[in-house]
């Protein structure tokens, strides 16, 4: 099999995009190989929507994918498809009065979630504001490239932003292929095999939380996290959109670990838990602290709560 075609298995979105572009199946299918050897290309092309697959179908898709990844990356990935836990609605809290802007979370996230290192993709962006400045409404004007020798800096505060896991997500509404949706536990997910890379969702997201793979995702081989979830940190393809999933591969277990960003935060500014559990730390924050959400006036209803503990 020629090398380019083999690689294309992992870039199936291109075939799908070619199909849309061509407008006619006949034209597009010219791009697809014929014959037995390439059965998996056809399998990938004909794969059903995630929500329409039964368990067996999903398992066979995952098998195929694990094989493709092993060939492409020379690394064995384990891809889970764990379903939402019953009675769980995830919520996140961030104490802005503690955050010191050290960016540990940014890179712990990268380590956990197999983002491309080159070109660089970060799911968390830490914004720096001057104290007293007008801010929540003008996130776009915040400084993101600050690099002093030490943080926190006098007269500044910091606010990390990532996917806000909206109850009412505008990104989901605009997706023409239903490649992104909200799961029962509140996590907004992307199926990288259905994403056609049109980036409507990126335009619709008011938080700049979605990121596009412009180039071929690249990462040093030894740095891959092989414990993955289909809807989370499995390696992505060139030309698809990705974002924070509250570490779905960790949190959707019983017991499940805290997200990587919560685990690393040296100041303990990051809080995570079940909004439906009255004893969870996130409920404590909502009930005892003055919480707010970003761009509340847009009615996106994020499940990401910011607060000032003091």
């Amino acid at each position: 099999m020629p090398k380019e075609i083999k690689n294309n298995i992992l870039q199936k979105p291109f075939s799908r995009r070619a199909l849309l572009k061509g407008g006619a199946l006949g034209l597009a299918s010219l791009a697809l190989p014929v014959g037995n050897a390439d059965a998996s290309v056809w399998e990938a092309f004909l794969q059903k929507h995630f929500k329409e697959m039964n368990d067996d179908e999903l398992q066979s898709v995952i098998k195929r994918m694990e094989k493709e990844y092993a060939e492409k990356y020379n690394v064995n990935f384990n891809i889970k498809s764990t379903k939402p836990l019953p009675g769980t609605l995830f919520g996140y809290g961030l104490d802005v009065s503690r955050c010191i802007g050290c960016r540990r979370c940014v890179y712990a996230c990268v380590k956990e979630n197999n983002q491309s290192m080159e070109p660089q993709i970060h799911w968390i962006t830490v914004l720096r504001f001057k104290k007293g400045e007008k801010w929540v409404s003008s996130l776009e004007e915040a400084e993101v490239y600050y690099a002093p020798p030490e943080v926190p800096e006098e007269g500044h505060f910091y606010m990390p932003v990532q996917c806000q896991q909206c109850e009412n997500p505008p990104c989901v509404k605009v997706c023409p292929t239903q490649a992104t949706w909200k799961e029962r536990d509140g996590i907004v997910v992307v199926d990288y095999n259905w994403c056609i890379g049109c980036r409507y969702c990126m335009a619709a997201c008011p938080y700049g939380a979605r990121h596009f793979n412009w180039g071929q995702p690249n990462r040093a081989k030894q740095e891959y996290n092989t414990e993955t979830h289909y809807l989370g940190n499995r390696p992505r393809y060139k030309g698809v959109v990705e974002k924070c999933t509250f570490c779905i591969q960790r949190t959707r277990e019983n017991p499940g670990r805290y997200p990587a960003c919560v685990e690393i935060c040296p100041v303990g500014a990051r809080k995570f838990g079940n909004l439906l559990d009255p004893d969870s730390e996130i409920r404590y924050c909502i009930e005892n602290k003055r919480v707010f959400r970003l761009k509340e006036d847009l009615n996106t209803s994020p499940k990401f709560y910011y607060f000032f503990a003091t």
Binding site: C102, V106, E118, Q120, Y145, Y146, A147, V151, W214
Partner: peptide, 18 residues
């Protein structure tokens, strides 16, 4: 105080790098 980890690279420099 802590030393911060590096800032992100400017996405404009970053898009199509090989």
């Amino acid at each position: 105080p802590l030393e911060p980890l590096p800032p992100p690279v400017n996405p404009e420099d970053n898009k199509y790098k090989k």
